[in-house]
């Protein structure tokens, strides 16, 4: 992986049309301005992880239904039986 040292106010170019500008460096966070073409998707890495997991969750409901939702839930209940039965708003 390429490592570069940059100060606040400096930039990095990726290819011809992506520019990453170090706008501000705080104590534990940096503020970054990104200039990229509209068709380039820019998201925080954890957002991409959650997107993928949500899609898997939405599709997984079909897996649950195919195997019999009730049976899946039963397995699930066995797995969580040892945990206290928490009220919805607990």
């Amino acid at each position: 992986m390429l490592m570069m040292r940059r100060r606040a106010g400096e930039s990095i170019l990726i290819g011809a049309d992506i520019c990453i500008y170090i706008a501000h460096i705080g104590r534990s966070r940096v503020k970054i301005a990104i200039d990229a073409p509209r068709n380039v998707k820019v998201v925080a890495q954890e957002v991409a992880v959650v997107e993928e997991q949500n899609r898997a969750a939405a599709a997984s409901a079909a897996v649950a239904a195919a195997g019999g939702l009730a049976r899946t839930i039963e397995k699930f209940r066995q797995a969580s039986a040892r945990r206290s039965d928490m009220p919805l708003e607990g």
């Binding site: 954890e46 959650v50 997991q53 969750a57 699930f76 797995a79």
Partner: peptide, 16 residues
């Protein structure tokens, strides 16, 4: 927590 069911496991998303 959003739950994901796959063939071999059931997971919950505690990150989000």
């Amino acid at each position: 927590a959003v739950v994901t069911v796959s063939e071999d496991a059931i997971t919950a998303n505690l990150l989000a």
